[in-house]
């Protein structure tokens, strides 16, 4: 059986190094299988997060040969027979141990977004499919945080203090475009989430394992709404005259 060489980052906040492990390659094997093999045979204390192993939970995010990926979806036969495979933790978040990073910042950002806010209404809701197709696209998000990892505002400039990141722009878009939602999150997007910091490089869209069109379908329409609300004097005048609920 062919053996693959995996260079896996072992370490914590005090530093670490890549260690090489040899793993026999079975047909259809993914990188997460290789990591499990290492755990069971060579390093029981190798830290990794995973749950579903079917690209549905978004737990096993890591950087494989530099590419932010779900390990459960990254097949070993993608790599050449002699190619060494480098597996390391997400760069954007502080390391806890080995492949596990501290992603708690994301949960804190989520708390600040105003939740779903429908008008009180006793009747059964009538909602047509065509009005929620887009919202359902956003709700496919499995919170793997690969988009957050690759976003250069967070990754290279480390502006977690200011920018909410693509994941939470997608979440806001899902709320904002829900036909029954009544809240206005534009001021939050502009002043606290700092949507303006995104300069649409689309790296987030490229790594999304759920193929959500993050930039085109979520971020750009939200940017337009923020512009409409705060930077469009004619629109503002018309709204003042005619009134607006959102």
């Amino acid at each position: 059986m062919r053996k693959a060489k995996l260079n896996v980052y072992r370490g914590d906040k005090n530093g670490g190094e890549f260690k090489q492990y040899e793993v026999p390659v079975e047909e259809g094997m993914v990188v997460l299988d290789a990591i499990h093999y290492i755990q069971a045979h060579d390093a029981p204390d190798l830290a990794v997060r995973w749950n579903c192993k079917a690209a549905k939970c978004g737990s096993c995010s890591a950087e494989v040969n530099g590419m932010p990926s779900l390990m459960c979806k990254t097949r070993m036969d993608r790599f050449g027979d002699d190619e060494e495979i480098k597996v390391q933790p997400l760069k954007t978040f502080p390391i806890i141990k080995d492949l596990v990073t501290d992603v708690s910042w994301n949960y804190e950002v989520n708390k600040k977004i105003k939740g779903f806010s429908p008008a009180p209404d006793e009747k059964e809701w009538v909602i047509h499919q065509e009005d929620i197709d887009r919202v359902q696209e956003f709700r496919k998000c499995i919170e793997c945080f690969l988009c957050q990892d690759v976003c250069h505002v967070l990754r290279d400039h480390d502006r977690k203090d200011a920018f909410m990141g693509p994941r939470f722009l997608v979440r806001t878009a899902g709320l904002d475009m829900h036909p029954k939602d009544t809240a206005n999150r534009m001021k939050y997007l502009k002043d606290e989430g700092h949507i303006g910091m995104c300069n649409i490089t689309k790296c987030c869209t490229e790594v999304c394992p759920e193929d959500i069109h993050i930039t085109d379908n979520a971020i750009i329409p939200l940017k337009e709404r923020v512009v409409d609300e705060f930077y469009d004097p004619i629109g503002k005048f018309i709204k003042k005259v005619l009134g607006s609920n959102k």
Binding site: D12, Q39, P44, D45, L46, A47, V48, I96, K97, D98, V100
Partner: peptide, 14 residues
């Protein structure tokens, strides 16, 4: 039995 530390140690959890 398990080696290593108590920090995120899946073998220990098992």
């Amino acid at each position: 039995a398990i080696k290593g530390s108590k920090a995120f140690n899946p073998g220990w959890h098992l």
